[in-house]
Write a protein that binds this DNA or RNA. Structure first.
Lengths: 339, 339
DNA sequence: CTGTTAGCGCGTTCAT
DNA sequence: ATGAACGCGCTAACAG
């Protein structure tokens, strides 16, 4: 392992000059610069990251918190975040909280121990007051998930609007008995969608029926379960809003297996616009989320915060959502509403 | 930011003693140990990772190389690897090569600059001779992808057998014109499956028809394209082997859209046993890969190599694959072969 | 333009 | 059982 000292010796220069060449400092003669570069090449020298991190108080690593990566929404978020981070010269450490507040808090120590320069929270498992103290060690940026109490930059999507347009679409198809699915009680994303859902209902003079609410639907299997629960109700819904395409796909799958027809017997709208929405039969009406833009913005922001060292600024960046109409809500026998 | 020095001052002890407490060394009186622990608590002290990394020549970070994380197979691999790494006290940096040899080589510098303690390659974009020189900086373990020239630990699956059982299953259904899809020419995983594919054909006295081979199928869209290409052939295949469930799903989707029936007009077998295999209609016959075990083993191995510092040992750990028969290959009108 | 020097925060001989 | 002192590899004053 060649060190900067080895390069200095070989060239007969000082460590400082070598360091200047490494960091592209001015005031190094072209002659010596070439000499150094050659020596580095010859020795296979590369600066040691740990030493640089210690000296510069900077690791060039970001941590991204997600519940689980096998959720396609988060896969896409990780993909985009990793690419954006790389563009800024940052590496990305993945932290899967698996919906556990303890694991989340534990991973937060990465910031405290200075193993990462900043944390991007794409999901939140603790109360903000639990997380807030970590702000003294480095920047935290919320991306996707949010918390009104959090005095940090937040990049998010207009989930109220998302819940609204999806529900309104169902209402426009003539449905009045619409069930509601979401993933988790704790998530503000889910809560916002529910607000949008209710808002749409209210516009049609309908009230929210708690018997139609299923707030613990995350996976495909949950969708299948929810379908059976819905069909067991005395006054069955004719449409269902879900918080993810996975759940929607599960509902559709179970419905078909039970001999029901989609959307004739049950209209289904998903969320996320994942690849499966075009593979199931029928294809799934859903809400598209601009994940790439959101991730890019979150990285841009955190990189800026790392530089300015001002962490407790509440800035909100919101991106719009878009309804994508497919076959799970509009059959040929029904009137259509949107292109 | 409290340092070890601050704790020393507060307790009136030396830095050495504090360090001993941090690292659970013996020869520290219970009395002082408690004193130190209290002081650490009071100051909110936590050891600085960069300093420890520099001093110990160890970062406790692993790098995992994958082409792209949105491929569900790799999502699952990342999930399992992150969990296994955490169990060993390691963090995981994600490196998406996006099938680019340059990006792969670039990420390899993480090992050279000592930013990570080891590299797990789940895909390979370069010739082994390009990668080999990095072995002098730290351990490289192959996981999933492999290379016969590579003198490093390799954790892999029996892909020849995987190609064999999937193809044999199709042959047992009476098919004789079987197309072949794979992802990439470079991958030894794909090459192995092709060997198994041909082996099964040979047992049935059939020869491989190059016109039936499509070696550039990765995504859903590729599946759709391949279906159209197959149907444009003069002597159409009646079955198709694919290297991923995504491609299989794409083929099925396009086939149905074109009015064909699965498996009656075309039997399709996928690979990976992803969630979508149970969502499409018909469900997809596929090959299950024990990703979790593979990831766990790879992490165990690399952690061991980091400790022993012996990197160039060619050890091979192979896990078996399993055929999962679903509806895309066996219809009610066909004779069935396996439970 | 270049070199000398002093740490960044920690762990670890080697004494005592 | 405890401490003094050195150095991991690098960068940033400060001199010159």
């Amino acid at each position: 392992m060649a060190t900067i000292e080895d390069v200095a010796k070989l060239t007969g220069l000082s460590r400082t000059t070598i360091s200047r060449v490494i960091n592209n400092h001015p005031y190094v003669s072209e002659e010596k610069r070439k000499l150094v570069l050659e020596a580095m090449e010859k020795l296979g020298y590369v600066p040691n990251s740990s030493a640089r991190s210690l000296r510069n108080q900077k690791t060039s690593i970001l941590a991204l918190f997600i519940p689980r990566i096998t959720n396609p929404f988060f896969s896409e978020l990780v993909e985009a975040t990793e690419i954006a981070a790389a563009e800024h010269g940052y590496q990305l450490i993945i932290c899967q909280t698996r919906y556990s507040p303890e694991k989340e808090l534990n991973y937060m120590n990465l910031l405290k121990t200075k193993q990462v320069d900043g944390v991007i929270l794409a999901s939140i498992q603790n109360e903000w007051k639990q997380l807030k103290p970590f702000l003294q060690y480095g920047p935290i940026v919320l991306c996707n998930e949010f918390d009104d109490c959090a005095n940090v930059p937040t990049v998010r999507l207009d989930q109220v609007y998302g819940g609204y347009i999806a529900t309104k679409h169902l209402l426009e198809q003539g449905h009045t008995k619409i069930a509601y699915c979401s993933g988790g009680y704790r998530s503000n994303v889910a809560k916002s969608r529910e607000i949008g859902f209710k808002k749409a209902l209210a516009e049609y003079k309908l009230t929210f029926d708690e018997r139609y609410a299923f707030r613990d639907a995350f996976h495909i299997a949950d969708g299948k379960r929810v379908f059976r629960q819905m069909m067991a109700l005395s006054n069955r819904p004719t449409a269902v809003f879900t918080g993810s395409d996975e759940v929607a796909a599960g509902i559709i799958s179970e419905a078909l297996a039970c001999g029901y027809r989609i959307p004739k017997d049950l209209a289904v709208v998903g969320f996320d616009n994942q690849a499966i929405t075009e593979l199931t039969n029928p294809t799934i009406t859903t809400v598209h989320q601009p994940v790439k833009q959101m991730a890019q913005k979150a990285v841009d922001i955190i990189v800026e915060k790392i530089q300015t060292k001002k962490y407790d600024t509440q800035e909100i960046y919101e991106f719009p959502l878009q309804l994508v109409v497919r076959a799970s809500t509009v059959g040929s026998e029904l009137h259509q509403s949107e292109a």
